[in-house]
Amino acid sequence: MHPQVYPTEAVPLQGVNYGGFPGQPGVVQQTAVNINTDVPVIIEYPQDHIIWSLLCFVYSNPFCLGLAALIYSIKARDRKVVGDVDGARHYGSTARSLNIVATIIAAIGFFIFIIIISVITTQTASYYNYRY
C-alpha cells in the first residue's frame, strides 16, 4: 500500500497569541511547513516465503526440505529486519528453491499414492468378482 500523494502545499501548524488579553487582537505567529511529495520513495524488499515454508514444513516435509526452507525463510526475514537486502535476497532465493523442490516431490508422491490406491482397489475388486 502506497500513501496517497498530495501536491506541494503550505500547512499552518499553530497560531500563538503574543500580548494583549484573551479575546483581544494581538500578534499572531504562524509556522508553515512545505511538504514536497513529487517523487514517492518505494523500497522493494525481497520476499522471504515464510508462509510457503511453513506449509511445506507442516504438510509436506520430504527429506526435511520443508524444515530447511523454513530455516532459510527465517534467516531471510532476519536479514530483512537488519537491513541487509543482499543477504535477505540470497536466503529468500534459497528458501524459494527448497520450497519448489519440496512441493514437487510432495505432489509426485501424492499422485503416486492415488495411482497405487486405485490399482489396488481395481485388483481387489477384480479378484473378488472372479468366479471359479
Rank of each mutant, 00 (worst) to 15 (best):
R79M: 03
V58F: 06
G19I: 01
S126D: 11
M1F: 04
Q30S: 10
A68F: 12
F57W: 09
Q24F: 05
L98E: 01
Q30C: 15
Q14H: 05
F111R: 00
A106F: 08
R96C: 12
M1R: 05
G20F: 07
G83W: 09
T94D: 05
A95C: 02
S118H: 12
Y45T: 14
Y91R: 02
G66I: 06
Y132V: 03
G92T: 02
V85R: 11
Q4G: 03
R77K: 08
I120Q: 11
S118V: 14
V33K: 14
V27K: 12
F21L: 11
P7C: 10
G26C: 06
P22T: 09
G23D: 02
T124P: 14
A68G: 13
N36A: 10
Y91E: 08
Q29N: 11
A107P: 02
V16A: 15
A69F: 06
A10D: 07
S60K: 00
L70M: 13
Q47G: 15
T8N: 07
Q29I: 05
Q4C: 05
P22Q: 02
Y132L: 05
I35R: 13
R89N: 04
H2V: 13
Y91W: 12
A76D: 00
I35K: 15
L13V: 04
F110E: 00
F57Y: 02
T122G: 10
S93K: 09
A10K: 14
Q14M: 13
P3K: 02
A76Q: 01
L67F: 02
K80S: 04
I117T: 08
G66V: 01
I117R: 14
S97M: 01
Q30A: 09
Q123C: 07
I114L: 10
